[in-house]
């Protein structure tokens, strides 16, 4: 068993990073925690510090001001870490791609392992995306 398999075998802890989003994806991520979707049945839970996290969920476009913070957060995360870009903005820049404060989609700044498109993606889509990624690792 390699290091990667060993790291991601048990409960995943998620860290939520809002780069420059409209709150839509963020509240859908929180929705995953609530009784209807209940992501904790898979052992996943949101943690406060990236130093405890296995997965970083990034929402929204990367703005000029959050670019350095995202790099810093990635540096602080224990490796191996999985980065999931959630929402159209994080994947491609979406509707904000033509703005002057847009500083590239997430994959221009940090390596991204999975993309979950949608504006916003439904909580089911997020769950399916993360489970699919886990099975692949």
């Amino acid at each position: 068993m390699g290091l990667k398999e060993k790291c991601f075998k048990k409960s995943l802890w998620l860290f939520h990073f809002s780069a420059g989003s409209c709150n839509n994806c963020d509240i859908e991520i929180l929705d995953c925690l609530t009784p209807k979707f209940d992501v904790e049945r898979f052992g996943m839970k949101l943690v406060g510090s990236v130093r405890h996290a296995d997965v970083i969920l990034v929402t929204g476009i990367v703005t000029r001001k959050t670019r350095e913070r995202l790099k810093e957060i990635y540096k602080q995360a224990p490796k191996p870490v999985v980065i999931v870009a959630i929402g159209a903005c994080a994947c491609t820049g979406g509707i904000f791609a033509s703005g002057y404060n847009f500083d590239g989609p997430v994959d221009k700044v940090v390596p991204v392992n999975a993309y979950i498109p949608g504006c916003p993606p439904k909580p089911e889509a997020m769950l399916a995306g993360i489970m699919k990624l886990l099975n692949k690792i």
Binding site: S18, C22, T63, F96, S98
Partner: peptide
């Protein structure tokens, strides 16, 4: 979180602006 929405709106048609301002806040 600044996403330059007002400027983006100026490059869209009146109909399209609805979908931009919708995404000011989710």
């Amino acid at each position: 979180n600044h996403r330059s929405i007002e400027k983006i709106c100026e490059s869209k048609t009146f109909e399209q602006v609805f979908y931009v301002v919708e995404r000011i806040c989710g």
